[in-house]
Each structure stands twice: as structure tokens, then as C-alpha cells.
Design a protein around this nucleic acid. Structure first.
Lengths: 226, 226
DNA sequence: GTCTATACACAGATAGAC
DNA sequence: GTCTATCTGTGTATAGAC
């Protein structure tokens, strides 16, 4: 599987994603027509990602967002009750999307090496196709309420644990060297995250997500293989 | 060399650091007595790091800083002309400190394996002893002026290039496998950064900087060694 | 649903007494 | 050098017309 194939498999379309946002917050928002809401949520989210990438969420003013979305200040408040809620909605939606898609790529039948490859790829390709979301989650987690913050940390542990289980299974089956798998899993995650945190660097160098992913997998496998 | 030994070698004392801040900004600040300035700069910097770790620099108000340092608003403005300048001073000082100390640990005589070990350790231990600074630089780079931002990126490239040169030398000498050294260097950096970005995680697990560093070195060496 | 105009709070920054 | 009191700008959020 490469990135292009991944995107084909991915059945979740952007549009459905914003429909979810609308449906899950239906009581909190004033807008009643689904089509309008979906269209504008997409605009709003993308604008937030773009502005926030430049200066961070706190520094983004509602007026910035208004200019960027070409919706007036008053109109914006039809879609969420305040800036803080907007942040929460974005995070929540991102979280649930990521969990949903990860599930699709877990195959307990495959051998550990294949499982590891698939999991690393799934994470890399997902973070590529929803990069603004991943970047945002990482950088803006601090601004969340304690509950929201915990959700982010628990996501980190959740994905790391999937790696950990595979590594342990591999050792048990005698395929992988005995190592400190907790450390290995942490380091893999660190390298995965670098891809979306340093977008500018890899873009400048013309490194694609496919190249990066293969290299990361080689790096890892060479360390744990007998 | 382990972390304890590193700290002994490190000749730069905290106090000297804040003296530098005072001396380099002497014309811009109202305070004339060195002792007072040094003492309060230390308080101010540490407060900024602490508050910012929780909510980010933008979200930190001057009143927050005033409470935390136990200096009044008016007094604070004796030490810097405004919030933006404060940010710039912190970044600038961090940058120059890091470059200065890195220089100390570069030994072109040693063989590539030793050079690599030393360089990775120097970076890890430095980032540990000045962790707030590293974390701050990473997370708040976005808020800098374009010039300041470039300084951060150039630091990233500077340290990465040192790794790169060692890897290439090692290949030339026939000690390391032929690989995409640019990619390897990037991944090493990614793993180094994870240490100070995810402090909470490693602390919770009781992983020390020495353990982490040794593991990272093993990981790397096993990939590039013949 | 979207707009403009505006209320209100709060942040950054300064003045001037001590 | 440090304080308190205060000015001024700007940001979030709402009211009410269209």
C-alpha cells in the first residue's frame, strides 16, 4: 500500500466529516439548513487551520476568521457559541475521525512484521491526508480544557499501545529481538509525528510521504529484526 | 559521558546567562544595578517558561507575569519594552547559548562513531538542562517576527548538518552503510526533540535522560553500522 | 441566515507618586 | 526601582435590521 492507494481505500469523504460536525452539534447551533451548515463548517475549519498554522489559535481573532471565511462576525456565532467551543468542536471531531479510521487498518491475522508495516503506514498516511488536523491537535492541545487535554494524551497512548502490542507479539513469536518495546514504540511515534510537525522541511527537500514512510519502516525493522 | 558528568563539564552557570541578558540589552532597559537586573531576569524568564508551558505565550497576560514574578506591571516594563520584545530576548538568548555550548562538544579528531555518540549526547543533555528553553523555542517560534523565525529554522538546519557530516564521513571511511543520510539525520533529530516535547510521558514512566539517550544511540547505530 | 453597529471586558502600556 | 492608578486599543460577543 502506498499513499495514493490509501486515499482510495479511505471511504470517509470530507463532506461526511462536516456533516458529522453539524449533526453532533445540532442543538448548540442556530443554523437549521444542513447544506448551508456543512458548506460553512468546511470553510470555517479550513480557515482556522490556515490562520492557526501561521500564528496559533489564541492569536487568531474572530475578525481574522471573519475575513478569511467571508462570513460576518455575527454569522460566525451562528455556528458555535464562542471561540472556546470552536476549539473543542475541532478537537473532538478530529479525535473521533482518527479513531474511526485507525480501526479499519488493524488486522490481527497478519504476522507481526506485516502488522507493523501496515500500522505505521496507516498512521503516516492518515496524518498526511488530515495534516492540518494533526498539527492543530499537537500544537493547540494546551489551550483545551483539562478533559480535552486528557483526550489528546489518551490518543497518544492508544496509538502507542497498538505499536507496543505488535512488538511484544513479535518477540513472543521469536521474530523480533528482545528489546525495551515501550521505548521503541515511543521513538516510532516521535518519527511519525515529525512528518506533520516539520512539513516545511520535508516539502523543501522534495521528500514525499511515501519515501519518508518507507525509510521509517526500514529504520525500525532493522533495529528489531533478528 | 552521562548526564551528571555533562552538567559538571558545562561551565556556563545560570547566573552568567542572565548577566548576558542584562549586558546585551543594557540600553533598552531602565534598570541600572546589575545585581537587581540579573536576579529579576531570572525570575521573569522562569515565570514565562512556567506560565507558557501551561497556556502558551500569547495567552499569558502581563498580569499573569506580574503575579508570578511578584513584580508590579510597572516594574516589569523596566526590564523590557513590551511583550513582543520579551519574546525576542528570550529566543535570542536561547539561540546564542545553544550555539555556544554545542561548539564545546565538537571534536573533529574522533572517529565517526564516537563523534556521533558525543553529538547526540550533547544535544540530549543540553536540551535536558535547558528544557524549558527548548520547549519554548519549539512551541513559540510561530509568534516570532520573520527574522526570528528564520533563526529558529537555521538552528534546526545547523544541528542537523552536524549530524549529516558525521554520517557522510562515516560512509566515506567505510564504517557506515550507504544510506540516505539526510533522512537519517532528520529522524535522529525527531527522536531527540521528542524528549523535551513529551516530558510528561517520559517522566510518568520513570525514563531518565540517560536511558533515553542510550536507547536512541543504539537505535541509530544499529541502523547505520555495517 | 447574514449583515452592521455596538456593548463590554480585558489586555498592553504609561504616568507619576513614593 | 517599584508601586498604584489609569489610559487606550482591541477582542469577544450580542442586538436587531434586513
Amino acid at each position: 500500500m502506498n499513499y495514493a492507494e490509501f486515499k482510495n481505500i479511505l471511504e470517509i469523504r470530507e463532506e461526511n466529516l462536516y456533516r458529522d460536525v453539524y449533526l453532533e452539534n445540532q442543538d448548540a447551533i442556530r443554523i437549521k439548513k444542513e447544506a448551508t451548515a456543512v458548506k460553512n463548517f468546511e470553510k470555517i475549519f479550513n480557515s482556522v487551520f490556515e490562520i492557526t498554522y501561521e500564528k496559533g489559535f489564541q492569536a487568531m481573532t474572530m475578525r481574522d476568521l471573519s475575513c478569511h471565511t467571508k462570513l460576518s462576525l455575527g454569522a460566525l456565532y451562528g455556528y458555535f457559541s464562542g471561540k472556546e467551543e470552536l476549539l473543542a468542536i475541532i478537537h473532538k471531531q478530529g479525535n473521533s475521525m482518527i479513531r474511526k479510521i485507525f480501526g479499519q487498518f488493524y488486522d490481527p491475522q497478519a504476522n507481526p512484521v506485516e502488522q507493523l508495516r501496515t500500522l505505521i503506514k496507516a498512521h503516516m498516511f492518515l496524518s498526511e491526508s488530515a495534516r492540518p488536523w494533526f498539527y492543530f491537535t499537537f500544537m493547540e492541545a494546551r489551550n483545551l480544557t483539562p478533559t480535552g487535554r486528557e483526550a489528546v494524551l489518551s490518543m497518544e497512548e492508544y496509538t502507542e499501545n497498538m505499536l507496543l502490542e505488535i512488538l511484544e507479539a513479535g518477540e513472543t513469536e521469536g521474530i523480533f529481538i528482545k528489546r525495551d518495546h515501550v521505548m521503541t514504540a515511543s521513538l516510532i511515534k516521535a518519527m511519525q509525528q515529525d512528518w506533520y510537525l516539520k512539513r516545511w522541511k520535508y516539502k523543501k527537500r522534495g521528500i514525499t510521504v511515501d519515501t519518508y514512510t518507507e525509510y521509517l519502516i526500514d529504520f525500525t525493522i532493522s533495529f528489531i529484526s533478528l
